[in-house]
Amino acid sequence: MIKTKKQKITALLFFLPAFLLLAVFYIAPAAVSIFYSFTNKALAGLNADNWTWIGIQNYSDLLRDERFWKSFINTIIFLFGSAIIGQQVLGFTIAYLMRNKSRKFRRVIGSCVLLCWVTPEVVVSFVFFAYLNSNGSLNEILGFLGLGPVPWLFNFAMISIIGANIWRGTAFSMMMFQSGLDNVPNEILEAASIDGANKTQKLFRIIIPSMKGSIVTNTVLITLSTLGLFGLIYALTGGGPGMDTTTIPIYMYNKAFKSYQIGYGTAIATILLIFGISLSIFYVRASKHDL
């Protein structure tokens, strides 16, 4: 009995620093965010101090705000294009093709992909700014093939940021799927071969179904990290041209810090937060058997 009590006190003391930091910097701001989203608080000017409670005004404004819907749709396109489809399909392809290669070959190829993952996001933006520029490397290559220079960042801005994010994030999915592929039971694959299954049948009937767990976890994790992506897009296109690459985080930033509409900005943040919370809950539930 005494031992458990002592343990309890030790545990509480040991938790304290982490708990304080998380409460002050994580949980309190999230609560504050929800609170301010029901007010007309501004960052500067009259409404900075004299804010009032305006109920769900911000949210009903948001629903009627065409620019918000535009950023919402952009976020969905970006999310599916770059993460859920782009990174996963490419990451899986690389992991799948690498299966039976020599260790050395795997390491060299893997390092090239991983290097992009380690690169800080601002550097990724700069590198892609140059790569996609009218005088950049990509247009140089297209020139060799006799194709005219394409001003990617102006005419295909969304495709540009999707490309940059696939380039940066694929390594994560690749690693997830590499360990997932290692867990596919070999006996079943051999049995299928004996029964005359070809490669495509094995891939779609055995390998992918038995990797369902990795695919679900990976989808949730990359969705969460892509949803909050700010620096990469902001430094590469600034959300433009026009609103072409303005995702929800960028719209939130513009509203809160450029137009000084804190109340409205936190309403956008709250929507993002709710999205994140629901996904996190789903993730915790999905990984329940791990605990």
Binding site: S33, Y36, F230, P249, Y283
Partner: peptide, 14 residues
Amino acid sequence: LFLTGLPITAIMVP
């Protein structure tokens, strides 16, 4: 585990 999933971007304004 739940907190690991929260997007930090969403709390930057508050």
